[in-house]
Simulated assay, not measured.
Amino acid sequence: EGIIARFRTMAIHRGSVLVGHVIGSVLQSIASVVLVGAVAVAIGFRSTNATALEWLAAFGLLVLFAVALTWIAVGMGLISPNAEAASNNALPLILLPLLSSAFVPVDGMPGWFQPIAEYQPFTPAIETLRGLLLGTEIGHNGWLALAWCVGLAVLGYFWSAAKFNSDPK
Rank of each mutant, 00 (worst) to 15 (best):
L132E: 14
S100R: 03
G135L: 04
L98D: 02
F103I: 05
G139I: 15
W143L: 01
G131L: 02
L99T: 05
P105G: 05
G111F: 09
N141M: 09
G77T: 15
P115F: 14
I94V: 12
P124D: 02
A147Q: 01
P81V: 13
L133T: 13
E137F: 15
S80P: 00
A117Q: 04
F113P: 06
I138K: 00
P121E: 04
M76I: 15
F103A: 12
A86L: 03
G75A: 11
L133A: 14
A117W: 01
V104L: 13
F113G: 02
M76C: 13
G75S: 11
T123Q: 01
P124T: 04
A147Y: 00
E137W: 13
W148T: 12
E127C: 07
W112D: 03
L91S: 15
I116Y: 08
W112S: 10
S101T: 09
E84G: 10
A145E: 02
L98T: 13
I94H: 07
F122G: 03
T136E: 10
E84R: 05
M76W: 15
P121W: 07
L93C: 15
L95V: 11
L95E: 06
I126Q: 01
L93K: 14
Q120E: 04
D107M: 09
A125V: 08
E118Y: 04
A147V: 04
W148F: 12
V106R: 02
A86P: 00
F103P: 01
L91G: 07
A147D: 00
A85G: 08
I79K: 09
G142W: 06
A102I: 13
W148S: 03
G77Q: 15
N89D: 11
I116Q: 14
I94R: 04
W143R: 06
F113T: 06
R130V: 10
G131N: 03
T123W: 06
Q120W: 03
G142M: 12
E127I: 04
G135E: 06
M76K: 05
I79Q: 05
P81G: 09
F122S: 10
T123G: 07
N89Y: 15
P81L: 06
I138T: 05
P121I: 07
L134S: 02
I126H: 00
A145R: 07
L146V: 11
